[in-house]
Design a protein around this nucleic acid. Structure first.
Length: 296
DNA sequence: ATGGCTCGTTCAACGAGA
């Protein structure tokens, strides 16, 4: 089973490339970010003609997340507990027709979509950018991630065997080697600051990077400006962070750098994991010693 | 010091991205 995440930077501008890639690479499930449209504007026909079901969460021209899957998707959710909103305060409407807000009456954005596929719990996540260290968007970014962390902790406490993947554009370069764009300066830039890296690393122990063991090098984003791609001055900010039970079934992973080439690419490339769902649970050496295998 | 690209909205610049 092949699962991928891709910040497509407008699904309407990129639909041909995205669907071509899905078919060519035989991808079973794709989590997309920055679809930049509402569900009624989503180019459904091309995905469906290629055999994909869709789940779409988009409110306007900003953000937006979606899943395309050849397998059935269930338990679709667009928020997690305590997810903060951003922007001008608005009053929520009782009939549910207006914007959904947080406890401060700030509108929730379309940045998260959870689905269950073949028993795998998958999230397509578009973490807020932060904009600058002194911007309201930066504290929003940190609080959004802290809320996600609290939920992740709860999900895995309730079910330690949950096969969970938090995949998407995390908008953080967690290690120095993940930042190759010289316009990002330590101490003054987002994506590499101590609080961002700290909250990213706080997820370790709950989920960890399912791709890096198979792809230790490589960026997932290159700015459109200043020849960043030809110079390979990119950033690694797109991750599939997975629980241990999920990682036990991962047999390969890669970053599809070639998707940054050619006509009208997204500025991000797909990040891919391959799973063997028939693999049994990770061997626990203690229990293996204690309990000899019994063949029925 | 500034802009550099790209997209959506909508036709002229601007917000947002990272």
């Amino acid at each position: 089973m092949r699962i991928a995440t891709w910040n497509v930077n407008s699904v309407r501008a990129r639909v041909d490339r995205v669907v071509d890639w899905l078919v060519r690479e035989k991808v079973d499930v794709l989590g997309m970010q920055e679809i930049k449209c509402r569900p009624d504007q989503f180019p459904r026909a091309q995905f469906e003609a290629a055999g994909y079901h869709l789940e779409i969460h988009g409110l306007n021209q900003w953000n937006g997340v979606a899943f395309a899957s050849t397998h059935e998707m269930t338990d679709v959710t667009t928020t997690f507990d305590g997810m903060p909103g951003f922007g001008e305060p608005v009053q929520p409407t009782l009939d549910g027709t207006g914007p959904v807000t947080d406890t401060n009456n700030l509108p929730l954005e379309a940045r998260a979509l959870g689905v269950t596929v073949d028993g795998l719990r998958l999230w397509s996540l578009y973490v807020p950018n932060g904009r600058s260290l002194d911007h309201d968007h930066f504290s929003y970014k940190l609080e959004w991630l802290r809320a996600l962390h609290r939920n992740t902790e709860r999900w895995l406490t309730e079910d330690p065997a949950l096969r969970l993947a938090l995949m998407g554009d995390w908008n953080i370069a967690p290690f120095d080697s993940d930042m190759g764009d010289p316009s990002f300066v330590p101490g003054t830039s987002t994506h590499i600051s101590e609080p961002e890296r700290s909250v990213f690393h706080s997820f370790e122990g709950l989920v960890s990077d399912a791709v890096r063991p198979f792809a230790p090098e490589g960026f997932t984003f290159w700015d459109y400006k200043q020849l960043r791609f030809p110079r390979d001055e990119g950033m690694r900010i797109d991750f599939i962070m997975a629980s241990e039970a999920f990682r036990d079934q991962v047999i390969a992973a890669h970053i599809d750098r070639d998707e940054r080439k050619g006509d009208a690419p997204s500025d991000h490339v797909p990040v891919v994991v391959d799973l063997d769902l028939s693999l049994s649970d990770h061997d626990d050496y203690e229990s293996e010693d204690d309990l000899p295998m019994i063949f029925g």
